[in-house]
């Protein structure tokens, strides 16, 4: 157990498709009266098991709707799996894409503290990292401007800078490096490479085999909620390319 940062054990996740759409009491009562509250079960994940060693960078690939995001949510502890269990050792830092979790009326600076607290870090801890975050995000004087005035690139740079500065044990990156200009992307990739020296485990979701190959050493492929391949990044990327060309 100690050698694994993430242990996903026979995880299945079921959603009730119809119930998701009902969000007013009237709709609920009308449908209940008509006995239309039939739920179609949808399995977003079916018996997925894999382990990620400490310090590994695991690429998660799959077509749209394959269950990648659901898997990340289960690992992050946001969703409780219907069956199975997930064990994560240490602090998880999810990189919040495009302002999710940021408060748009708050300044960049205030959001740094809010974000850190959301991950359970005290203010004093993040104050030490503050200069580093501002520098890496290249926000400069804009750090005191409210977040609503930021561009999407600025927001994702800030998000990436915070998530990587707190030195988490597990870092979740959901298709984030596609935002931002080429220079920042390169800088981010370098930073992730540096982090692996510190034993940080990375989960990286992407459609781009090139990027997965550059960043990750391991990879998995999900298809319709099932784990179809698990192995070295190079082999898996080849396999994924074949799957893409067959489609």
């Amino acid at each position: 157990m100690a050698n694994y940062a993430i242990d996903v054990d026979h995880v299945s996740m079921m959603f009730n498709l119809n119930s998701d759409g009902v969000d007013s009491a009237k709709e609920y009562l009308v449908k209940a009266a008509k006995k239309e509250l039939r739920y179609t079960n949808f399995w977003a994940l079916k018996d997925v098991s894999f382990k990620v060693k400490k310090g590994d960078r695991m690429g998660v690939m799959g077509f749209n709707g394959a269950g990648k995001s659901t898997l990340l949510k289960v690992i992050a502890g946001v969703l409780k799996p219907t069956f199975g269990s997930v064990n994560v050792s240490g602090v998880i830092a999810p990189m919040l894409e495009l302002g999710a979790g940021f408060d748009s009326n708050y300044s960049g600076k205030e959001n740094i503290f809010l974000y850190a607290a959301t991950m359970g870090f005290p203010r004093s801890f993040i104050e030490e990292k503050y200069d580093e975050i501002v520098e890496f995000s290249e926000l400069g004087q804009f750090i005191n401007a409210p977040l609503k005035s930021y561009s999407s690139g600025m927001k994702s740079r800030l998000g990436f800078a915070i998530a990587t500065s707190v030195k988490p044990d597990v870092l979740i990156l959901d298709e984030v490096l596609s935002v931002g200009d080429a220079a920042f992307r390169e800088k981010s990739e370098r930073r992730i490479e540096n982090m692996m020296g510190d034993g940080v485990t990375v989960l990286y979701v992407s459609h781009s085999t090139d990027r997965v190959r550059r960043i990750c050493n391991k990879a998995i492929i999900l298809t319709k909620g099932q784990l179809v391949a698990n192995g070295e990044a190079d082999d898996i990327c080849k396999l994924y390319k074949e799957m893409v060309s067959q489609k």
């Binding site: 949510k73 992050a76 502890g77 946001v78 999810p94 919040l96 999710a100 940021f102």
Partner: peptide
């Protein structure tokens, strides 16, 4: 909602 969907809190 944004944060609840992303991070365990």
């Amino acid at each position: 909602a944004g944060i609840i969907k992303k991070v365990y809190v």
